[in-house]
Amino acid sequence: MKTVVIIPARYASSRYPGKPLATLRLPDGSHKPLIQLSWEAASQIKGVDAIYVATDDSRIAEAARGFGAAVVMTSESCENGTARCADALARLGAAPELVINFQGDAPLTPPWFVEDLISAMRADANIGMATPVLRCDRQTYDNLTEDRRNGRVGGTTAVFDKDMRALYFSKEVLPFIDAGKLPDPIPVFHHVGIYAYRPEALRAYTATPVSQLETLEGLEQLRFLYNGTAVRCVEVQARGRVFWELNNPSDIPRIEAALESL
Rank of each mutant, 00 (worst) to 15 (best):
A83Y: 03
R65H: 13
G68Y: 09
T23C: 13
I51P: 00
A95Y: 04
A90W: 01
A69Y: 01
G29L: 15
M164K: 14
T55G: 01
E62H: 15
P20K: 01
D142W: 03
D184K: 04
D28P: 01
N143R: 09
K19T: 02
Q103A: 12
E76T: 10
I51M: 01
R254Y: 09
S119Q: 11
S38V: 00
P185G: 07
V188F: 02
P253G: 12
I127T: 15
L26S: 06
L24C: 08
A12I: 02
R232F: 03
E79Q: 03
P209K: 06
A54T: 01
D28E: 15
L21D: 05
F169K: 03
P199R: 08
V159L: 13
V5S: 12
C233M: 11
L24E: 03
P183D: 11
P33I: 00
G151S: 12
D87L: 08
D116A: 10
T215M: 09
G228W: 11
G47A: 14
L225E: 05
D142K: 10
F224L: 13
P107Q: 09
P27K: 14
T156N: 08
A41P: 00
S261N: 13
G128I: 13
L182Q: 11
L222W: 12
G29R: 10
A69V: 04
I7F: 02
A238V: 03
Q103S: 12
P17N: 05
A125V: 12
N248A: 06
Y205K: 05
K19M: 13
L222Y: 06
R165A: 11
L174D: 01
A257D: 15
P96Y: 06
L219D: 02
A158H: 03
A9V: 02
V114Y: 02
G18S: 13
A63G: 10
E172D: 14
L37E: 10
A196G: 12
T82V: 15
L108W: 00
V5L: 15
T206L: 04
L24I: 07
G93R: 12
E235H: 03
N101P: 01
A50D: 04
L219H: 05
L202G: 02
A86D: 14
D137Y: 02
T145H: 07
P96V: 07
A90M: 06
R25L: 13
